[in-house]
């Protein structure tokens, strides 16, 4: 006994979940299986596709050519996936360039990290296009952009520490889902140094044109970063405050 997909008006539009699927016997139909397989294939390819650094530099416009390009200690994708500790540490060969960077003690370093989906990073220029001018207008001093390959969020701690900055913003490719393989995450860490924990960070996630739009993400980040700089902290306390602010401003 088979049954066609549920075609009830408005039903499928209620959720991105795969509801109302038909069945053949108890099994999924050929079309549904293939559609699922393609979504999974897209996610798998996103995990394994190397970051196109040249394209990213071009997309960054004026800020691109001065970007520093570094690697973590994870030498390939398989190592990256099984050794999160190595993805959080800088390749020693990259250290001198950061240690001798002429811009010292800046307010902020921005790290563009491939993370689990290098595709996502191509949304980073749109975030920066909206964010950077506001920061510069407020008098922030920025370290050169850093592009990091085979990088975890925590690599930003070492990069920020070596650059001697007050805060680091890591824009990183999130783990691809079936519905989106290109979500970008943004992590803020005050006073970055090796050993910071996730509880000491703030995160804005699912940044992509069909998710949290880059322009909106930039506004959220601008608010968080301004508060972080004023209160000299990031993490749970800052998150709680931003929640209260959002609630009070919408009520």
């Amino acid at each position: 006994m088979s049954e066609a997909p549920i075609t009830r008006p408005g039903w499928r539009a209620l959720t991105p979940a795969r509801i109302g699927l038909g069945r053949t016997g108890v099994s999924q139909t050929t079309a549904d299986n293939l559609s699922f397989a393609m979504d999974h294939a897209r996610a798998r390819d996103a995990v394994h596709q190397p970051l196109d650094v040249e394209r990213l530099v071009n997309e960054l416009g004026d800020a691109g050519p001065s970007a520093l390009i570094v690697n973590s200690q994870a030498t390939d994708r398989a190592t990256y996936l099984t050794r999160p500790d190595l993805g959080a540490r800088l390749d020693p060969r990259a250290a001198p360039e950061l240690d001798t960077c002429p811009v010292r003690g800046a307010d902020l370093a921005i790290v563009l990290a491939d993370g689990l989906s290098s595709l996502s990073l191509h949304h980073a220029p749109a975030v920066l296009e909206h964010l950077t001018p506001q920061l510069l207008a407020d008098g922030w001093r920025l370290a050169p952009l850093v592009i990091a390959r085979q990088s975890r969020v925590a690599l930003g701690d070492e990069i920020g520490e070596r650059l001697g900055v007050a805060m680091v913003l890591v824009l990183i490719g999130e783990r691809p889902g079936l519905s989106a393989a290109d979500g970008l995450g943004a992590y803020l860490t005050w006073s970055p140094e090796v050993g910071r924990t996730n509880a000491e960070r703030n995160c804005v996630s699912n940044i992509r044109p069909q998710g949290l739009a880059p322009r909106d993400a930039a506004q959220t980040l601008y608010w968080l970063m301004t508060e972080a700089r004023r209160r000299r902290l990031t993490g749970v306390q800052l998150k709680d405050q931003s929640g209260l602010r959002q609630i009070s401003s919408s009520s």
Binding site: T15, P16, A17, R18, I19, L21, Q28, D32, F36, D39, H40, R175, P176, G177, L178, S179
Partner: peptide, 13 residues
Amino acid sequence: GVPGADDVMLNYQ
């Protein structure tokens, strides 16, 4: 039992 095995919140299968 997840619709189509695809959890659209937790992003796993």
